[in-house]
Amino acid sequence: MTAPAFPPLGLGCAKMGSFNNPSTLGDSVALIQLALDLGVSLLDTANIYGQGDSERAIGRALRGQRHRAQVVTKAGNAFSAKMRLMRPLKPLLRAVLARRQMGAAVTAQRAGAMRTDWSQAGLLRELDGSLRRLRSDHVDAFLLHSPDAATIARGEAVGALAEAKRSGRARLVGIACDDLAGLDAALASEVTEVLELPWDVIAAIAEDARGAAIRARGIPVIAREVLRFQPGVDAAAAVRRAHASPLVTTTLIGSRQPERVRALAASIGDHSQGDRA
């Protein structure tokens, strides 16, 4: 398979299907299709987002037009059995929680219902589940979802990435890192072909040896949380700043509001990666 060329902007799909998002599956599908029409053609998701409903929305939106998007998914985290049993009741529960304004509280408690599985068998099983929900035989990138440095260094999870690529289930593989220690471990692995990093980490490494290593290896970087880590900065300006970074390949914008997606997409206009300072 030919490796994908990632676009300047991507849509963060973490909130699709979550308890604190009142949007329906149809709303999410429409938002994805709008993003594609605007050139926001990388879709970033994970097995846990919306208990799989984020991937289901992407699969429905891309039916018959898979070629229009670069799909990135992640694994390593999973819900407890209790949370999995709640999924069929989600439509009813979301309606009740919305009336009581408790959706955010349920989402905030999610960490307590989470578990991790970094085994090769577990990661590949989750990838296969993602592919079923996405209605696709491959993803453009498969990433480990926020592992700590020790997990990366142990190697079994990285071995799952190698197998995902070897089997054709992923065109590229890599790691979504949360901190500098995780990034150091990711860069120590030759398997790492893609990085997803929060903006604070990107800003911290822009001028150091890590940034130089990323550029030298030609590793595409997906920037996330560019608004959260630029407090007080206008959203459009924050997106433009991330887009202008020589380290960033794709900047994620996350919203459930179509007009906000339009505005943020327009904030960089038709700038290409070659226009960056």
Score class of each variant (00 low, 15 high):
R56A: 13
V158M: 04
F79G: 01
W199E: 15
A98M: 10
A150Q: 11
G159Y: 02
C177N: 13
V29Q: 10
L124K: 00
Q51H: 15
V29W: 07
A69W: 10
G64L: 11
L134R: 01
L247R: 03
A3L: 10
A203C: 11
C177P: 15
Y49N: 06
L36Y: 03
M83A: 14
I205C: 00
R68S: 09
A150V: 07
A209M: 02
R171H: 13
R68Y: 08
A242R: 03
R132N: 06
A235E: 14
S23V: 15
S245F: 05
S146W: 09
F142Y: 09
E196A: 15
F229T: 14
F6K: 12
M86Y: 06
D148W: 02
S130R: 00
A209Q: 11
L11I: 00
G112S: 03
R110W: 05
I214T: 03
P147S: 00
A216D: 05
L187C: 01
E259N: 10
R217E: 01
Q120A: 09
D270T: 14
E259V: 15
D137L: 02
V158G: 02
A206N: 09
D234S: 05
S136V: 14
C177T: 14
G12Y: 03
S272N: 06
V40Q: 01
G26C: 08
M1C: 12
M102R: 14
A244R: 09
L9A: 06
K165N: 04
G218Y: 06
F142D: 08
S267L: 02
A46P: 02
V191K: 11
A78D: 05
I58V: 12
G155Q: 02
V201N: 00
G218H: 01
V40L: 03
I175K: 13
S245P: 03
L183I: 03
G112D: 01
R133N: 12
R154T: 14
R262F: 00
R171E: 08
P4A: 09
T251C: 00
R240L: 04
D178Y: 06
D128Y: 04
V71H: 02
I214F: 03
D184S: 09
K82R: 09
T116F: 00
A170P: 15
G112L: 01
A185C: 10
E259I: 13
L127S: 01
Q273E: 15
M102G: 11
L38Y: 12
A61T: 13
A212Y: 06
L62F: 04
G232K: 13
V158R: 02
F142Q: 05
Q109V: 08
T151M: 00
V106I: 08
G274V: 05
